[in-house]
Amino acid sequence: MKNMTFTAALLVACFTSPAMAQAAERPVTLDSDMKLERIVEENGNRTTLLVDPEVVVPGDRLQFVTRYNNVGNETVNDFVITNPVPNSIRVTDDSANELEVSVDGGVNWGKLADLTVTDEEGVVQPAGADDVTHVRWSIAELVPGAAGQVQYSGIVE
């Protein structure tokens, strides 16, 4: 009796695998990726190459990429991608100043220059790139088939 119940549960699990569930229920797919930024200097010109992060050490710059795709048949509105910043990562100044960010765990959002943090002594200070806990991107409308990617850069602390 016990064995039969177990088999039935397994079958259900197979039929509702995550991929199928997403295709059936989610009109949008999200795909996350991490790349290592390698700055190459040639003839005085600096270019940034994105490589697979095989060896990563403190000080390295990583690019956190999220690809989205409206795979459904309907238009999606108010599309907001939120990316929590891992603890060991400090968002680069460029990304922190360019993107909509939060410095309080995703409660309040805005431009970094408009945000503040309260230090240990209770003094309110302008927020810095190392205070950023989350970054996000807002897209008003995703028509069926619309796809793209967003990214930010962070430094391994």
Binding site: S32, F64, F79, P84, L142
Partner: peptide, 13 residues
Amino acid sequence: TDIENTATATYQI
């Protein structure tokens, strides 16, 4: 240390 990244999206449909 593992660095893990997961993004989340919200929307209206």
